[in-house]
Design a protein around this nucleic acid. Sequence first.
DNA 1: TGCTTAATGCAATTTTGTTGCAAATATAGA
DNA 2: TCTATATTTGCAACAAAATTGCATTAAGCA
Lengths: 132, 132
Amino acid sequence: MKKSRNTAARTHIQELLQQSDFALSQTEIYGLSEEICDRVTTYRVLDRLLSDGVVHKTVGLDGVVKYAACRTCSHEEEGHNHLHRHDHVHFNCENCGQVTCLENVVPEIKLPRKYKIREANFTVAGVCPECS
Amino acid sequence: MKKSRNTAARTHIQELLQQSDFALSQTEIYGLSEEICDRVTTYRVLDRLLSDGVVHKTVGLDGVVKYAACRTCSHEEEGHNHLHRHDHVHFNCENCGQVTCLENVVPEIKLPRKYKIREANFTVAGVCPECS
DNA sequence: TGCTTAATGCAATTTTGTTGCAAATATAGA
DNA sequence: TCTATATTTGCAACAAAATTGCATTAAGCA
């Protein structure tokens, strides 16, 4: 895994995600980093953080992609590579709009043979404890 | 549930979805119906089909929303309303790009109390049987 | 410290989805 | 079958989200 460089934008965005209790969209991240870098750069930094395995992404029911720091994401060996799994559930609150990683809610699924899983996205929408 | 009208565009798009083995995006649907109606109309027809409970939608890992005919989606009574549930898994093939409904793969999840589920989207990406 | 290559900013473009309004048309009722 | 009316459609314009190319900047290794 070739390493990517440590830049101001990267550091800033990574900290933002690590300190957030919620998953953030590119738009939100850019809003919170207005002066640190260009909008295009946030896209590129996020791609870098993704492929470095530092963050993972999740897609809401509205199609909005959000990013969250990897905390307890399980790591599995597969050959020589680390396989990063983010199969915990993400909760989309329809009231406050927040997306939360439920790190310890991991659905069990049994796919028919011959399907090879590489990545998963489990999203559940409804009302979160704060809003109910 | 007020009924929506039966128009050429609606009939065409509904048949397209019912005859497809895969979920289709608005872009794909429009591509397959080039001359039947305007681009905006496909969006509106899809919304109508959704709220009529004839199709359901699923969001891929790339954020692309796709639509699929309801086949074995379970119906549950809740008060006087039918509750339409689409909690089966959708498989995203990373090779051919197709999204397939795995109607009989329904994950069991146990959310912490106080989270109220209203809708779910389970997507798994990898390689489908055709491509492996 | 200098060099190489990755990262950035900027401007332009593409893609995706939405809105308002006038014209067309599906359906219920006469 | 014809008519009234409310839904649906097309069009044009707009808004939002994401991508690309290229010249410039800067991170990090030797």
